[in-house]
């Protein structure tokens, strides 16, 4: 039998206290929207937006759009994650690779890659390939930088003691360097994920077709403000859920790390 402990009660009270401002905001939005101070076109009430989201869900459009957006974002993110870690590891271990890629990464990172969107459309067309490419192009830089920095900051003593115990070069990479660099690599991934989401929404807005961004643009063209706000809410929920999932993954993977013990 589960007992209601003090800790559980406190956690519940904590959750309620954190929910209160969100509920207050929603209530204020509803009251303000209904007060007549602004037209429903400028600011539809949350109830009207919820209604619209439910309609989309019942019609099935919502799930098709969410699926399309998630597929592009996560596919691009996964390619950027794997590619970024591989490139970062190669750069950290090989001087020639570092010489070649270092200026490209350090100059490319701060550039607004989104400006290349028309170029990518010109090369790859309007479909998923170009959207995913755009996501990869934007999301890979933080992963590479974090991997290089993470591996570079592994303590010498750790490597030396592994060597001392007979580890081979290949084993060093998998058993020492990557695990030790994992906190920083995950930080890089946590930077890359929101970027992937921002970019996927923009590419969908620009190119149209299925997807939450495209649906929002469609609603905007028909001056359907409920549709626009529904899109914002849907995208916000997706973003929140993915970022929370990433944070959860980090806690799981870094249980050994000092930060895993906190909270």
């Amino acid at each position: 039998m589960a007992r209601v402990t003090d800790a559980m009660r406190r956690r519940f009270a904590w959750g309620a206290a954190r929910l209160a401002p969100v509920v207050t905001l929603l209530a204020a939005w509803e009251i303000f929207a209904r007060s007549g101070a602004v037209t429903p076109f400028m600011l539809p009430a949350p109830s009207a937006v919820t209604e619209r989201i439910c309609e989309d869900a019942l019609g099935g459009d919502l799930f098709v759009n969410i699926g399309a957006t998630l597929y592009r974002a996560l596919m691009g993110f996964a390619i950027a994650a794997v590619g970024g870690v591989v490139l970062g590891a190669v750069m950290a271990r090989n001087a020639l690779a570092r010489w070649f890629f270092d200026p490209i990464i350090s100059v490319g990172f701060p550039m607004p890659k989104i400006a290349f969107l028309p170029v990518i459309i010109l090369w790859l067309g309007l479909y998923d390939v170009s959207k995913i490419t755009m996501v990869v192009l934007d999301a890979i830089f933080p992963v590479v930088t974090a991997t290089v920095a993470g591996i570079a900051s592994v303590e010498k003593e750790l490597l030396w003691s592994a060597r001392n115990m007979g580890a081979k070069d290949r084993e060093l990479l998998w058993q020492i360097l990557l695990p030790a660099a994992l906190p920083q690599i995950l930080t890089g991934l946590q930077v890359a994920l929101p970027i992937a989401l921002i970019v996927v929404v923009v590419t969908e807005m620009q190119m149209g077709g299925y997807g939450l961004g495209g649906a929002m643009m469609q609603a905007s063209r028909f001056a359907n403000s409920r549709g626009v706000f529904a899109g914002i809410v849907e995208i916000a929920i997706i973003g929140y859920a993915l970022v929370a999932a990433m944070a959860w993954l980090r806690r799981r993977l870094l249980a050994w790390h000092q930060e895993g013990r906190e909270g």
Partner: peptide
């Protein structure tokens, strides 16, 4: 206590979603 949860809620939102509404 008031603003923390709101910041946490809106921070991960992909901000490009706001493009149509700012135009609106």
């Amino acid at each position: 206590a008031m603003l923390g949860p709101l910041v946490e809620l809106f921070y991960p939102m992909p901000k490009s979603a706001l493009i149509p509404v700012t135009v609106l």
